[in-house]
Design a binder for these strands. Structure first.
Length: 490
RNA sequence: GCCCCCAUCGUCUAGUGGCCCAGGACACCGCCCUUUCAAGGCGGCGGCGGGGAUUCGAAUUCCCCUGGGGGCACCA
């Protein structure tokens, strides 16, 4: 292998497929992706499905779908393949079996016949006596006959790693610095279950070595596992990757972000009308910063500027408000055609599905210019424009305001009359005529337009009135005004 | 109980001994613009958890305390 290849950056994102892609996972994936992209490296997606009872194919699909949506594509992984595959751990069991066999043969691992119940009792005792909760090594030096007796009793065997009884293992972490762990605190941990399935730490060590992973960028919660993986890597004769542990993401109560804080999966944010640009940018800044000033970054800029050196050490609270602001920013920044496509994609699952553009109704593209600057999420498009497609349904507050407005009937009939007499129903013509009508009634424009807004939309908040009228068209506009007038007459 | 990590405005953060009586962004509060709501512009409020120590000088270094979090599984 050439020096060039030796130095190649190879990072991986290794989710366990037990649910949707959580924003914390998404951030980890993003940092790995950015790191690889910025250094001409390779980004590997590896599915860690050794927990048979919790892993599902559906979750694998969800995670893949979310990552694709975010634009975090991988060079090697499921559905893509690669020279170090397969990329689902349960398809790599031969590899683990071989590695475990080698450790066993070299005396670096041993069979343990203790039952789960015995181990639980041992842990309880240790806790009660205030001792570190670690395996005491009962089976560490079992003789051949003792082992035979255990098997004769019908006891099942797991394989444990023979952890050095003394000494320290130091993790040289790129974000946390050097962290020391006492080997004695680590204990002889299990590497292969009685079922023959490897445990997390073992599979990770074997795979990180086999896949030539150069940098492990992952969540903080894995820091205490790292010394075990380091020891395993050493026993396997493999070089250790560089580690970088990211602080976790918190909810507003400073507890780790979880479902009870509301939306936490990429899928949920997508369904609420967030765009990938905003989510990526926001997540990038949650735990990383470029300088004292800059908040807005394109993916390209992130790739160019991301570095482990500028990843922070403090856990960060997820702030929905800021994400929302950022989302609005990216929506405003899009060109009309691009935004139209995003909205059309988004609309597929909403109550407006199929409506825009049908039967002479306005299309999404017609409405984008009237709504773009008001939207914070794609979902806002629905709230802002549904009255163009659906029968007017009055919001309670809007209706009350309309009824309370003593001038409303006069305004509405004047407006209807004015609109009826127009030659053209373009925005300018409508505006000129209505401004003149407001003048003639000696009303401020806002005062004049508000009853009209409510009559046309049933809402207090809508796109600009002149644009709305023009899109609605003369016939529909006048009929809605007449309907409101009829209602007020009762 | 044991091991480990962390601590600057409400939130995300800049800050690596003097450039900081701490800068930016979101949120909040005013004002301006305005057909509603947003957006935008201008201005404001607001912070170095506590205690020691080192130093001419500490947000920045060290120690202790307090507070948060992670781990100690045949989960990952």
């Amino acid at each position: 292998m050439s020096q060039q290849e030796n130095d190649a950056v190879r990072v991986r994102f290794a989710p366990s497929p037990t649910g949707h892609l959580h924003v914390g996972g998404a951030r980890t994936a993003l940092y790995n992706w950015l790191f690889a992209r910025g250094r001409a490296g390779r980004f590997v997606l590896r599915i860690e499905d050794t927990d048979l009872s919790r892993s599902t194919d559906e979750a694998v699909r969800q995670i893949i779908s979310s990552m694709r949506w975010l634009g975090l594509d991988w060079n090697e992984g499921p559905e893509t393949g690669g020279e170090f595959g397969p990329y689902r751990q349960m398809e790599r069991t031969e590899l683990y079996r071989g590695a475990a066999g080698r450790l066993l043969a070299e005396g670096k691992a041993y069979h343990c016949y203790c039952t789960p119940a015995e181990l639980e009792a041992e842990r309880a005792r240790a806790r009660a006596e205030g001792r570190p909760v670690v395996y005491q090594g009962r089976c560490r030096e079992l003789s051949v006959t003792e082992a035979q007796e255990c098997r004769a009793e019908g006891r099942e065997a797991v394989i444990r790693f023979r952890t050095p009884a003394a000494g320290k293992t130091v993790v040289r972490d790129r974000v946390k610095g050097d962290v020391e762990f006492d080997n004695a605190q680590l204990g002889d941990f299990i590497i292969v279950r009685s079922s023959g399935v490897p445990t997390y730490n073992f599979a990770v060590a074997v795979d990180d070595a086999a896949m030539r992973i150069s940098h492990v960028i992952r969540g903080d919660d894995h820091l205490p596992n790292t010394p075990r993986q380091l020891l395993l890597l050493e026993a396997l004769g493999a070089a250790a990757p560089v580690y970088a542990h990211l602080p976790l993401i918190l909810g507003s109560d400073r507890a780790p972000l979880s479902k009870r804080h509301g939306d936490v999966s990429v899928e949920e944010f997508r369904a609420r009308g967030f765009v990938r640009e905003a989510l990526n940018n926001y997540l990038a800044l949650l735990g990383w910063s470029y300088d004292a000033e800059t908040t807005l970054f394109s993916m390209d800029e992130l790739v160019r500027n991301f570095s482990l050196e500028r990843v922070g050490v403090t856990a960060a609270v997820f702030d929905n408000e800021k994400l929302l602001w950022m989302n609005g920013h990216y929506i405003r920044e899009m060109d009309a055609a691009g935004l139209t496509v995003r909205i059309e994609e988004f609309l597929e699952d909403t109550r407006l599905a199929g409506l825009p553009g049908e039967d002479g109704r306005p299309s999404v593209g017609d409405l984008v210019p009237l709504t773009q600057e008001k939207m914070k999420t794609l979902a806002d498009f629905v709230e802002l424009t549904d009255f163009f497609f659906l029968p007017v349904s009055f919001e309670e507050k809007a209706l009350a305001k309309l009824k309370k407005d003593g001038a409303a009937r006069q305004i509405l009939s004047t407006a209807a009359e004015t609109l009826r007499q127009l030659d053209s129903f373009g925005i300018e013509a409508v505006e000129t005529a209505l401004r003149a009508a407001a003048d003639s009634m000696e009303l401020k424009l806002g005062k004049f337009l508000q009853p009209l807004r409510i009559a046309l939309s049933g809402k207090l908040v809508t796109p600009g009135m002149f644009e709305t009228l023009a899109v609605l068209g003369r016939e529909e506009s006048i009929s809605r005004i007449d309907a409101a007038l009829g209602m007020l007459a009762q």
